[in-house]
Design a binder for these strands. Structure first.
Length: 262
DNA sequence: TACATTTGACCCGA
DNA sequence: TCGGGTCAAATGTA
């Protein structure tokens, strides 16, 4: 496949710089002055990453580890691609007890085409997630955990996430994301220049997914692996993104240094 | 007290 | 029919 590597690097760089602008905006509590809005920056960031993913997806070799399905550039930030989840009414009779309690498990099965799949060493992504279920999966020793955005109530955010530990000994997680976040972006306290932040609410957030949520037995081990600074969190996120791109054969000759940080 | 997690029940769809 | 996704009561935690 032929991929415009320069375009990918430029798009990633643009996204990264936009994130930095957003950080400065939010940190200084600058109100929308008409020059550039927070919403615009968030949109720009999302477009940058989705743009890269779309390029990769369009050249899908079958070896891609991160697959943004139905996520092309123009629709990625529309916020309306969140799948319809709950049917609420199937027309079937329900027992009085159920009618009184409200129906449970009433939903439309998610279509995988509305999902984004990734394999990552970390489960943290900066967003606050609330675990709403866990299931043992057939022929799998690792349970699958189900998360929804903590801000579902406050902001009506419909983002969902499924996390399951891989059984290949790689200590990585298979993550499936559904829908787009409509809540404010994650931690703005991250210092993109590698400095410590005054507002480190990412690591302190009780709702941030950790390995403990997937496998409580990792609790002790996880302490030693805990990221020590916001800057490292950011770097880790970026390296993870980059690792995804590197998994595509023709991109292997791009180094992380090719992404110019301003 | 408020919010998060656990866990069994319930339902859909393959 | 059964595996998987979600609900919601019970429980835990700060």
């Amino acid at each position: 496949m032929e991929i415009n590597k320069k375009e990918l690097v430029e798009t990633l760089t643009k996204g990264r710089n936009s994130a930095k602008k957003l950080q400065n905006l939010l940190r200084q509590k600058v109100k929308d002055d008409g020059l550039v809005s927070v919403d615009d920056l968030v949109k720009e960031i999302s477009q940058s990453f989705y743009g890269c993913l779309s390029v990769l997806n369009s050249c899908n070799s079958g070896e891609i580890s991160r697959v943004p399905v139905s996520a092309h550039l123009n629709s990625a930030c529309s916020g309306d691609q969140t799948p319809e989840v709950y049917s609420g009414n199937t027309g079937k009779n329900i027992t009085p007890a159920l009618a009184q309690k409200g129906r449970r498990g009433c939903y439309k099965r998610r279509k995988t085409i509305d999902s984004r799949v990734e394999v990552s060493k970390t489960v943290e992504d900066g967003y606050a997630w609330r675990k709403y279920g866990q299931k043992d999966i057939l022929n799998s020793n690792s349970p699958r955990c189900y998360f929804r955005c903590t801000h579902k109530q406050a902001h009506g955010c419909k983002a969902l996430k499924q996390v399951q530990m891989l059984e290949d000994g790689s200590n990585k997680f298979h993550i499936i994301c559904f829908g787009q976040h409509t809540c404010p972006p994650p931690n703005v306290g991250l210092d993109l220049d590698g400095n410590h932040s005054e507002n480190d609410n990412l690591l302190n957030s009780p709702s941030t997914i950790t390995r403990n949520h997937i496998d409580p037995s990792l609790k002790q081990e996880d302490l030693s692996n805990k990221v020590s600074s916001p800057a490292l969190v950011w770097k880790e996120i970026f390296l993870n993104e980059f690792e995804c791109f590197k998994n595509v054969g023709s991109l292997c000759d791009i180094s992380f240094d090719d992404i110019v940080f301003s």
